[in-house]
Design a protein around this nucleic acid. Sequence first.
DNA 1: ACGATATGCAAGCGATTGCTTGCGTGTCAA
DNA 2: TTGACACGCAAGCAATCGCTTGCATATCGT
Lengths: 106, 106
Amino acid sequence: MADVFKALADPTRRTILDELTDRNGQTLFEICARLSMKHNLNSSRQAISQHLDVLESAQLVQTRREGRYKYHYINTKPLEPVIERWLRPAEPEEPSDPATAREEEP
Amino acid sequence: MADVFKALADPTRRTILDELTDRNGQTLFEICARLSMKHNLNSSRQAISQHLDVLESAQLVQTRREGRYKYHYINTKPLEPVIERWLRPAEPEEPSDPATAREEEP
DNA sequence: ACGATATGCAAGCGATTGCTTGCGTGTCAA
DNA sequence: TTGACACGCAAGCAATCGCTTGCATATCGT
């Protein structure tokens, strides 16, 4: 689970996920080209490849080999527990504005 | 928005959010003590203070001053757009298993 | 077989991160 | 006022990160 947050910490990796959301199943070169075109990100092939390795280690990207091509698919499953961890249990608590909240002294 | 992911990338900061979820509105020393007790995290006061600064910059923690005490409150609002970014738009797409999916050649 | 294509592996480098150390500031009780 | 308490600021350091560079492997078309 820690890998998921570390993977999402980099803006280039988040843009890669955006790209795979827009068009799933791209190859490495395809991702490089579209990152340069649509997102003005001129990172090298090796840089993107390493980013994809990080995303794959975090299970956020799954891959499928076919000959010399390697297709990359986004996988949003690791994101679901991220939400449940803090979003759900904290919702029915006290008001979100600290100026109006009150607690006993420590 | 980048600050949110960077803030969540550290395991100690995630544990701090867990602690604030369990008991909202704690002071710095209170957080230090409970991290040591319940989570076996023996970080120094300054280390935790810097972590809280990061969380506050990311708007994940709001603070309220009262005399020499500073109370910390979790704020889950920055987490909501995180979900919508990839979870929602990618759901009605093709099968998540890359072995069965298919795309045209690049 | 040969070259072109698509990707993998690994060492090295500057920048950033998380933490420590030491001192400073403001607040409260006696 | 004095001392204890809660917290802030900033320099320094080892570890990690993102990226480059260079070479290697594997697959396809001709």
